[in-house]
Amino acid sequence: MSDSVTDRTYREVMTVDPPPVSTPFEQATRDFVFGQVWSRPGLSRRDRRLVTLTCVAAADAPQPIDDHVYAALGSGDLTLPELLEFVLHFAVYCGWPKASHVEGVIRRQWARLQTERDEPVTPWPALDNATLGPNDWDARLERGVKEFIDVNLLPAPPPDTPYTHAGILSYVFGHLWQRPGLTRRDRRVITVACVAIDDSPMPLQTHVGSALGSGDITKPEMDEIALHFSVYYGFAKGEALQASADAGWARLQS
C-alpha cells in the first residue's frame, strides 16, 4: 500500500495527521496497523473502534485511550451517548476502575472537540430513569433469565449465589444487555474482546459461540475481530480468540 493511501487511512481513523516516523515501531504502526489492518474489508470501522477502545482501555494505556476516544468522537463513528454506554458495558466485563478512567477521558476529549470546533459547550446527555428498567425484582429476574438464554443460547444458571442472583441474572442480563444505546451486536463485539482479554475460557467459548450461533457476527467478521484484537492486545491472546472462533464454528457445522 502506498504511503499516500496509508497516510489517508491514518487520517481517517485518528482524525489527525500522521506523526513523523523515526523508529521501527512507528514504521510498523503506520505500515501494518493502519496500512493493512484498519484498511481491511470485512469489518466496519465502527466495529474496529469498539474492539480498539476495549483493548486500549483494558491495557491502561493513557495516550492511546485519549487518542482513540478523541478519534471515535471526532469521526462521528460513535456518538457521545454510545460511547458512554460502551463504558458501562466495558465496566461489567473488565471492571469499574478501568471504566471510570475511560469515562473521565470521554469528558475531557468531548470538551476538547467542542473547543477546537469553536462550538458552545453542550449539556451532558440527560438520563431517563426509564432506562433503568423495572424495579419489580421478580420481573427483573424473569427478564434476566430470558435475556441470558437469548444472548448465550444456553440455559440460565440457578439464582443460588450472589454472583448469579444479583450479578448475572438481575443486573448483567436483567438490565445491562437490555439497555438502549447499543445494539446487541455492538455488545457482542465489546464482550468478545473483553472475555478474550480476561483469559476466561468458559465465557470466551460461550460468547464467541453464541455470537456465531445467533448470526449476529459472521465467521469472517469474527476472524477479522481476532486479527484486529491481536494488533491491540497481542497475538498470543488473539490466538486463543481465533481458536475459540474456529472451534465454535466447527461445532455449529457438525
Rank of each mutant, 00 (worst) to 15 (best):
D136N: 08
N152G: 03
G213H: 11
D7F: 03
C94N: 13
V231E: 02
A236I: 11
Q253W: 07
D60L: 14
P134C: 10
H207P: 02
C194L: 01
R179E: 04
R184G: 03
K146V: 15
G95S: 06
E147A: 14
V208H: 01
A247S: 10
G215F: 10
A243W: 06
A126M: 08
D77F: 00
I65N: 07
P158C: 04
E239Q: 12
V92S: 09
L141M: 09
R143G: 13
N129M: 02
R45G: 13
D7M: 08
I168A: 13
D198M: 15
D160S: 14
R184E: 05
F25G: 04
A61T: 10
V5H: 13
P123Q: 06
Q27D: 11
L176Y: 00
D138Q: 14
E221N: 05
P18L: 06
Q205P: 00
W96Q: 00
A240C: 06
Q253V: 13
D223R: 13
Q242E: 15
A126F: 01
R45W: 06
T52S: 11
G174W: 09
K237E: 00
A226E: 06
S39Q: 07
P201L: 05
V56F: 07
W96M: 10
P120S: 13
P62I: 13
D199F: 09
L182F: 02
D199G: 10
G248E: 01
Y70Q: 11
C94F: 02
M222T: 06
C55G: 03
G234P: 07
A91D: 09
P180H: 01
A193F: 06
A166M: 03
G174E: 11
E103K: 10
D216T: 12
V172N: 11
Y163K: 06
R108G: 08
L127F: 15
P24A: 05
M14C: 12
F34K: 08
L212K: 13
I168F: 09
D246T: 12
V189L: 15
K146F: 13
S254V: 15
F32A: 14
Q205K: 08
R49I: 13
G167N: 02
S230C: 01
Q114K: 12
